[in-house]
Simulated scan of single mutants.
Amino acid sequence: MSDAADGDGLSVGRVAARLGVTVRTLHHWDGIGLARPSLRTAAGYRLYTVGDLERLQRIVVYRELGLGLEGIRAVLDDTTTDVPGTLRVQRAQVEERIDRLRELGAGLDRMIDAHERGLLLTVEEQAAILGPGWNPDWSAQARERYGDTAQWSQYAERSAARGPEEWQAVTDAVAALDRALGEAMDAGVTPGGPEANRLVERHREVFASYFPLTRQMQVCLARRYEAEPAFAAHYDAVRPGLAAWFRRVVDASARAHGIDPDTAGWQDRP
């Protein structure tokens, strides 16, 4: 601060640069009487002395600690203020923010993990929840195939928020839907009828546990259920021919909503 010791003081710009604040901030502190420059040039420009700089440095420190401007004013100017007590309160608030930031950091780590792995369950948890037929490698294969899609990001966001109990609930909902589809097929439910259409809507609701499913996307998914061996085997294990029946049910519902199943594409918006 030797350059302020010659009696001329420092300009607002030089002080702002030295303290890492803006000129506007210094003007504001001057305007509210928190830190006024002791000198003025003949032209009326502000000049800060060594003593002014010391006060400003204390203000910057207290502001970094989270004190509001009125709190800083009290610490600096009010002789009745319990400064240690005020700082202890502020310390407690800082610790609360630190704890919150740690929680946010843990949440970010989990989100990153979900984007990279998909399913945040141990191999043992996957076997217990998803059944012995589940292959733990499927999640990695799905990321390799779909990792650059919006649906994978949506799936990861949901996965990051779920533990074993939440995944168990999803698994139970899927199993209940599978049973309902098999029972409807046994009962001769006709594609396009009220009961069939209710099952189509239920499928979309259950599937939203992974990512939102438009009707066009549902048509494409139902075709995959029938065409891809792994999917077909799953549904045919519930009821022989269930994958093909469900595709017809979905196609009929799509037509009722003005969608041609033969030309439907993977559209994530209606």
Results as ranks from 00 to 15, higher is better:
Met1Glu: 04
Asp3Phe: 10
Ala16Lys: 12
Ala16Thr: 07
Ala16Cys: 10
Val23Tyr: 01
Arg24Cys: 00
Leu26Trp: 03
Leu34Gly: 06
Thr41Phe: 14
Leu47Ala: 14
Leu53His: 10
Glu54Ser: 13
Gln57Pro: 10
Arg58Met: 04
Leu67Gly: 06
Gly68Ala: 12
Gly68Gln: 06
Leu69Ser: 11
Arg73Thr: 08
Val75Glu: 07
Asp77Gly: 13
Thr80Gln: 15
Thr81Val: 07
Val83Gly: 08
Val89Ser: 02
Glu95Ser: 05
Arg100Glu: 12
Leu101Gln: 14
Glu103Arg: 15
Asp113Cys: 10
Ala114Gly: 08
Gly118Ile: 12
Glu124Tyr: 00
Ala127Asp: 07
Leu130Pro: 03
Gly131Ile: 01
Gly133His: 07
Gly133Lys: 09
Trp134Tyr: 15
Ser139Thr: 14
Glu144Val: 11
Gly147Ile: 03
Asp148Lys: 14
Trp152Pro: 06
Ser153Pro: 01
Gln154Ser: 14
Tyr155Phe: 13
Tyr155Gln: 09
Ala156Asp: 07
Ala160Glu: 06
Arg162Lys: 09
Arg162Thr: 09
Ala169Pro: 05
Thr171Trp: 06
Thr171Glu: 08
Ala173Val: 11
Ala175His: 04
Asp178Ser: 15
Gly182Arg: 14
Ala187Val: 12
Pro191Asn: 08
Leu199Val: 02
Ala208Val: 09
Val219Ser: 05
Arg223Pro: 00
Phe231Ser: 08
Ala244Trp: 11
Phe246Ile: 00
Ala252Ser: 13
Gly258Asp: 05
Ala264Ser: 07
Arg269Gly: 00
